[in-house]
């Protein structure tokens, strides 16, 4: 089973593998750029860690003891995905394989990107794309692609049925 995502002129194919992984097949240069945006959209890992710490009670010393570890963990996810995509491009590969053992890293990196996009553009409150600035429209379509990638990872690689 495969799924395609259309945004403008290009499409990208996501296909589950028999080994329980996922193949991402970018169909154009634009698709590669969208993949590269995953780690760029995530922004500063410390931002997410700090915003989660902001939910904690004051005397928890979360900032001091937990935020550094969370930041490192988020950084690792984001860097792994960025490096995987860069390496695939550098070696002229046509597809990217997501092995089951790397699914959580991919999911986490994509989730960071979606959380950052939501914080920046409030996409969930966007009623109508008509009249929205180009930057926001572009963010919206990336978010939809990231959502599809997450759903495929959950359903076919991480073994959870996705409904949202």
């Amino acid at each position: 089973m495969a799924a395609s995502n259309d945004y403008g002129e290009s499409s990208m194919t996501l296909t589950p593998t028999l080994e329980g992984g996922l193949v991402i097949e970018p169909g154009s240069e634009k698709d590669w750029q969208v993949l590269q945006m995953i780690s760029r959209d995530s922004g500063r890992s410390a931002y997410l860690a700090e915003s989660l710490a902001g939910l904690m009670i004051e005397d928890s010393e979360w900032e001091e003891y937990v935020v550094p570890d969370l930041t490192s963990s988020f950084d690792r996810q984001s860097s792994y995905v960025a490096v995987t995509i860069e390496e695939a491009r550098k070696h002229g590969e046509q597809v990217i394989f997501v092995k089951p053992k790397h699914a959580e890293q991919w999911y986490g990196a994509v989730n960071q990107a979606r959380l950052a996009l939501e914080a920046r553009y409030k996409l969930s409150k966007l009623d109508d794309l008509e009249g929205a600035p180009d930057e926001m429209r572009s963010a919206y379509f990336r978010d939809r692609f990231y959502l599809m990638l997450q759903s495929m990872l959950l359903e076919y690689v991480m073994g959870e049925t996705s409904h949202y």
């Binding site: 939910l55 999911y107 989730n111 979606r114 959380l115 939501e118 996409l123 969930s124 959502l147 997450q150 759903s151 959950l154 359903e155 991480m158 959870e160 049925t161 996705s162 409904h163 949202y164």
Partner: peptide, 14 residues
């Protein structure tokens, strides 16, 4: 746990 518009239901369950 607080609701947010990003995390998928199946993910939260997992």
């Amino acid at each position: 746990v607080l609701d947010d518009p990003v995390n998928l239901q199946a993910y939260v369950t997992m």
